[in-house]
């Protein structure tokens, strides 16, 4: 059997703040904003949740789904731009919590919103090289947006975990391709509390150029056309960009729409394209081909092509669906949201 996804799981915190509530705070017109970004509300972590806890809970779901023994995981990579420590890996906490230690390798990755798919590439490489049997790649973020900034409407929280191996994959990897340049559209300096971004510069030369170029590169490499894909998950910094990217590539919006979790959970950064991919897998039938394309500011895109196998039906009843997390919700007002996100100076 060829290499692919052995199991996956997501975790999305259950608190939400609506675009309407954030707009109330900053005297913005929520209807215009919501329409402009195609986001209704975003997920907010509980006060005791961070990138490590979300990663662990997503990884546990993935383990249950795959049915494999955690001791067989030989590599764990956690991609995030909100690791709880500047120095001390999130990946080791995940490894201990799921019982994968000690005969394994682990590292934290950072590449804005594509650090999670960078981890997937690394694990695919290790499995393909027969260095390891199974590996785990996680993309998680608890994104912070500067209060009053446009990013505050979308900066969400969530995680997705993928177990990669070649025993009984639910979707096999056909190929992957990347497109990477030094494009300063979004950044956060060491020690800075909030990220900065370059406004509309984040669109054309950044998100669209990289997403589309990586996609085209993958199509060329695999000798495929966009029509060959049944389902697609692009990175979703808002609910508008992935649909525009689809339009540029002449992809009907129906193939992308099922991935658009951003509408209800916001931009989960490193998790965003992976959560979208997970939702596509939740809905996929054997034989379908799925395109996953991440985008990370700074900037780069990783594109993957997967073909869903019959195994997906065998593992279906062990999956915790993305929709179960999306529907589990409790609304916060802005004051409680500010408390949850540590925006008050307490000491």
């Amino acid at each position: 059997m060829s290499v692919g996804i052995e199991g996956y799981g997501v975790y999305i915190p259950y608190f939400r703040i609506t675009v309407k509530e954030i707009a109330r705070m900053w005297n913005d017109d929520h209807k215009t904003i919501s329409k402009g970004i195609n986001v209704i509300e975003k997920a907010v972590p509980d006060m005791d949740e961070d990138t490590a806890t979300i990663s662990v809970n997503a990884a546990r779901n993935a383990l249950n789904h795959s049915g494999i023994d955690p001791k067989n995981l030989e590599a764990i990579y956690v991609g995030s731009e909100s690791h709880p420590y500047a120095v001390k890996p999130t990946a080791v906490t995940v490894a201990e919590a799921i019982g994968a230690t000690p005969y394994m390798t682990a590292a934290d990755l950072e590449f804005a919103c594509k650090a999670g798919t960078a981890g997937m590439q690394m694990v695919f490489g290790l499995v393909k090289a027969n260095e390891i049997k199974y590996g785990l790649a996680i993309g998680t973020d608890c994104a912070q947006g500067r209060p009053g900034d446009a990013l505050e409407y979308t900066a969400g929280a969530g995680g997705a975990a993928f177990i990669i191996g070649n025993e009984a994959p639910i979707a096999t990897l056909e190929g992957m391709a990347s497109f990477t340049t030094d494009t300063p559209d979004f950044w956060r300096r060491e020690g800075a509390r909030y990220p900065s971004h370059a406004g509309r510069f984040t669109g054309e030369p950044s998100y669209f150029r990289h997403t589309i170029s990586a996609t085209e590169r993958l199509l060329n490499k695999l000798n495929l056309n966009v029509e060959d894909f049944d389902r697609i998950s692009f990175h979703q910094p808002n609910g508008r960009f992935p649909l525009s990217a689809a339009k540029i590539l002449n992809i009907p919006r129906e193939k992308v729409e099922d991935s658009l979790c951003v509408v209800k959970v916001g931009n989960t950064y490193s998790a965003a394209s992976m959560v979208g991919f997970a939702r596509q897998l939740d809905l996929a039938k054997p034989g379908e081909r799925i395109l996953l394309v991440s985008y990370g500011s700074g900037a780069g895109s990783d594109a993957f092509s997967f073909v869903v196998t019959d195994e997906i039906e065998n593992k279906r009843d062990r999956a915790v669906l993305v929709d179960q997390y999306i529907s589990r919700r409790k609304e916060l007002d802005y004051a409680m949201y500010a408390k949850h996100r540590g925006k008050f100076v307490m000491e």
Binding site: Y14, D46, M47, D48, E49, D50, A52, T53, V56, N57, R60, P84, Y85, T93, A97, Q324, R328, E347
Partner: peptide, 24 residues
Amino acid sequence: FRKLMESTREGIIEYGFKAEPVNP
């Protein structure tokens, strides 16, 4: 899996178990 309690900004973070309802 959650953070057990608020930690200081410089100390280690204490993680551990908390219970949640199986049915939301």
